Computed example of a mutant assay.
Amino acid sequence: MEKKKARMAMSALSQETRLAVFKLLIDAGDAGLAAGAISETTKTSPTAMSAHLAILSQAGLVKSKKVGRKVIYRALPRVADELADFLRNISGSDARP
């Protein structure tokens, strides 16, 4: 994983609601969840949830697919695995900007 991608993922997951959403989507598995269901489960307004999901998408942590009138979001756990590997293997020189 590149440093820039790692920073984006860590930044996205550093916010409490986004971390909760990512965990919720990991637990949902391949079926994913509709944006409305995510918003209801986390007790977050649809507008705020839209912003959170956009940030997670830009960081490459979630993927969306339109199904009928709903947008279904799925976590991409492979990216979290890559981030964990990046952090495990970081050396002093890699830590510098």
Rank of each mutant, 00 (worst) to 15 (best):
K65P: 00
G36M: 09
E2H: 13
F86N: 01
M1A: 13
R74L: 05
A80T: 06
I90M: 14
F22M: 08
G32F: 04
E82P: 00
D94L: 10
F86L: 00
P77H: 05
I90K: 04
A28D: 06
R7F: 11
K63P: 00
V62L: 05
V67M: 02
P77G: 05
L61R: 02
K23W: 14
K66G: 06
S45C: 04
G36N: 09
M8G: 09
R96E: 08
A48C: 05
K4A: 15
A31S: 15
P77T: 09
A12H: 08
A12C: 13
V79K: 07
A75F: 09
A51Y: 10
D81L: 10
G92D: 10
F86D: 07
A54L: 10
D27G: 12
F86K: 02
T17I: 12
T47E: 02
R74V: 03
S14R: 11
T47D: 01
G29M: 11
L56Q: 08
K23N: 14
G60T: 06
I90N: 01
D81C: 07
L76R: 10
K70E: 14
A37E: 13
I72W: 02
G68N: 04
K65Y: 01
V62S: 01
T42E: 13
H52M: 03
K43A: 14
S50G: 15
S39V: 01
A54I: 10
A48Q: 15
R18Q: 10
R74E: 05
L25E: 04
T42V: 12
M49L: 13
D27K: 15
I55A: 13
A59G: 09
R78F: 04
F22P: 01
L56H: 10
K5D: 14
D94N: 09
M1C: 04
R69W: 01
L83P: 01
M49C: 14
E82A: 11
E16M: 08
R18H: 06
M10V: 11
M10A: 12
I72F: 02
